[in-house]
Amino acid sequence: MAVCWSIGPFAWIVLTSFKPPSEIMQLPPVFPETYVLDSYKNVLFKSHFPYYLFNSFMVSLSTVCVAIPCALLAAYSVSRFSFRGKTAILFMIVVLFTLPSICLVAALYKLFYTLGWINLPVSLICAYSAHNFPLALFLMIKYIDKIPIEMDNASLIDGCTHFQALRYVIAPIALPGLISTAILTFIFCWNEFLFALTFTLDESSRLASVGIALFQGTYEVPWGDIAAASVIVTVPLLIFLLAFQRYIVQGIISGAVKE
C-alpha cells in the first residue's frame, strides 16, 4: 500500500505523458486508449529543454567536482586532528545547513550581482557547493572515522605526508563513501529549484528544474509536455539510484550502527 502511494503520482505522470491532448483533461481521468509520443517530440525537438538538461548536468557535475574534494579534505582534518574551535566550527556548519534556502537567496543574489555572476553557471556552482558541503562533510567524517588511525600512522612512518596518506591510503578505502556522497550531491543539485530560478534569466543558463515550471501555452497549460519533461528529468536519477543504491544506502547509514 505504501509503495503504491509513493509511486502512484509518478506512474500517473508517465501515463499522462503518453496521452493525446484530447484525453489529458478528460474527467473522470481514464487510461489512454492510444499511446502517442507527441509530448516527447515537443519537449526534445521543439523547445529549449535539451539545453536545460545539458546545463543541469554540467552544473551538477561541476558542483560534485568542487564540493567532494573540499569535503574530503575537511573531513580528514576533523577526523584525524584536534584543534581549538573544532566543535564550534562543526556547530556553525550544522546551523548553516539547517537554514532554509529562501533565507540565503537575497544575500547571495546581491553578492553574485556585485561580482557580475548573475545568469552565469558559476553562481549556481558556488551556491550549490556551499549548500551541499555540510552534508558531504558529515557523510565523509563518518566514513573516515571507521578507518583505523593506525593506517595513517603506518603511512607516516613509511615517509608519507598527511596529504599523501589521505590520497594513497584513506581515499581509496573510503571510495564507497565518496561515491555515495557524490551521487547524493548530484541528485540534490539536479532537483534544486529556488537558486536555479533566481540566478538564471534566460535559456542560455536555465536548468531543467526551472524549464519544467516555465512551460507555457498561449491559451492553455501544456500538461502533456510538462509530464513528458518530468519523466525525462526523472529517468536519469532513477538509473543512478538503481545502479548505485548499495553505495547510497551505505552513505546514509554509515556510523548509525556501532561496530
Rank of each mutant, 00 (worst) to 15 (best):
A171Q: 08
G177L: 04
D152G: 01
V233P: 00
P222H: 11
I170F: 04
V78S: 01
A154W: 07
D225C: 14
S204F: 12
D202A: 04
I179H: 10
G159H: 05
L156G: 03
V231H: 01
S62E: 03
L61F: 14
I179G: 07
L197G: 01
L166D: 04
P236S: 05
F83L: 07
T87L: 09
S56D: 00
L111Y: 07
V221F: 15
L178I: 12
A196K: 06
I13A: 02
S77M: 11
T114W: 14
L207M: 13
L242P: 00
L15V: 10
F83N: 04
I170D: 02
I252P: 01
L37Q: 02
L27R: 15
Y113N: 15
L96G: 11
D202I: 09
G177D: 05
F31V: 14
V64T: 01
I118D: 06
P148F: 10
L237H: 02
L15F: 09
R167Y: 08
E23N: 08
Y247E: 10
L108V: 01
K19L: 01
A67N: 10
F193D: 03
A107Q: 13
G255P: 06
P50T: 12
V36P: 00
P100C: 08
A11E: 04
T234C: 02
R206L: 03
A2C: 11
P21N: 11
L90A: 04
I212E: 00
I253Q: 08
F240S: 06
M58I: 15
W190T: 02
A74Q: 05
Q250V: 10
V30I: 12
V3P: 05
G116A: 05
L184N: 02
F188R: 13
I93P: 02
D38H: 15
V233K: 06
F49H: 02
L37W: 14
L197R: 13
V105A: 04
I173C: 04
P100H: 11
Q164I: 13
Q26T: 14
I68C: 01
F57T: 11
W190C: 00
E23W: 09
I252E: 01
D158F: 11
P121D: 06
M25W: 15
M151W: 12
V257W: 05
L139Q: 14
I13P: 05
A227H: 04
V66T: 09
P32R: 08
M58H: 11
A75D: 06
P20W: 06
L241T: 11
V249E: 06
E192T: 09
F193Q: 05
F10M: 15
V94Q: 13
R167G: 11
T161I: 09
V30W: 02
L61P: 02
I253D: 02
L27C: 00
I253A: 11
C103Q: 10
E203Q: 12
S62D: 07
F138M: 10
T234Q: 00
V95D: 10
L184T: 06
I24D: 07
S205H: 07
F49Y: 11
